[in-house]
């Protein structure tokens, strides 16, 4: 790993001030550190934000669940309040990586990285999340901009993620047998005003599978999906799964999710 300057701060303003065109915020480091080791990324400054108290924590109200950016996956997985409000969200967190990753990895880090096969982005899409940053609020449909790309500007820091509590929801994934990231992950959420189907792993970026969502809005049952056609164009294709297989799995896992809602 190339050398860098490590900064640790307990203040959001200072953190954003330290940021430069050649810096990265460090939360759990579950992606940042391996990427630097493999030479896929290098930075002059690493700004550790874990000591900023107000970035961590869980707040649940009747309508929303707000999770601080540096809240760890294990905290979300074990939160009694989240299990009650949005059980599928706690279950998603329980299924990220392995126990050691969940002990360190954070929600802010996950969505800022926007890995096309990460779990949390699908929850953001399905649960109409609003991402609160150091300078503004961004809705999930605007936040995830492309493969490993987000609407975040340089130095802009995620502070929390606010999820809308749905009527019912479920996340189902088919994990890559090697990395255990999602080959396809489908997050189905039924809200009062409609259904969202957040899909991760299938394309270069998480997306809302509108064809399935609109079918489910009309009738929330797995059979409603039977006749939905999911084209394979635009789907990822790699040694683990072809585009055709992924397209089929989007449907299969959407059905599984609906059945398990």
């Amino acid at each position: 790993m190339k050398t860098f300057n490590y900064h640790s701060t307990n203040d959001v303003k200072e953190a954003t001030k330290l940021a430069s065109s050649n810096s990265a915020f460090l939360a759990g480091g579950m992606t940042t550190i391996p990427s630097m080791k493999l030479g896929l990324a290098s930075y002059k400054d690493i700004i550790d934000i874990k000591r900023i108290k107000k970035l961590s924590g869980i707040k649940v109200s009747g309508k929303s669940v707000i999770i601080g950016a540096t809240t760890k996956h294990v905290e979300v997985a074990n939160s009694k309040e989240i299990k009650k409000a949005i059980p599928s969200l706690a279950a998603l967190a329980e299924g990220i990586g392995d126990p050691q990753v969940r002990n360190r990895g954070t929600i802010g880090g996950s969505i800022a990285n926007n890995d096309p096969a990460a779990d949390y982005p699908s929850a953001c899409i399905a649960l109409n999340a609003t991402i609160h940053t150091s300078s503004r609020k961004i809705t999930a449909d605007k936040f995830f901009a492309g493969m490993f790309e987000t609407a975040l500007k340089k130095g802009e820091l995620i502070q929390s993620v606010e999820f809308q509590v749905p009527e019912k929801s479920c996340y189902q994934k088919y994990p890559n047998p090697a990395s255990r990231y999602a080959i396809v992950g489908v997050y189905v959420a039924k809200h009062k005003n409609g259904v969202n189907v957040g899909v991760t792993g299938a394309k270069s970026c998480v997306y809302n599978e509108k064809n399935i969502a609109s079918a489910l809005s009309k009738s929330f049952s797995s059979s409603a999906i039977d006749n939905v056609k999911i084209p394979s164009s635009g789907m990822n294709s790699d040694i683990h799964a072809s585009a055709e297989y992924r397209a089929n799995m989007v449907k299969i896992f959407a059905k599984k999710a609906v059945d398990a809602c």
Binding site: Y6, L26, I33, D48, K50, Q100
Partner: peptide, 24 residues
């Protein structure tokens, strides 16, 4: 951080020591 040979406990929790900065 995939193989887990480096797991230690930090403040009582298991972590992968290859993916945590000492300074952190």
């Amino acid at each position: 951080s995939q193989c887990g040979a480096c797991v230690v406990h930090a403040d009582g929790k298991s972590i992968k020591s290859c993916t945590a900065l000492a300074a952190d």
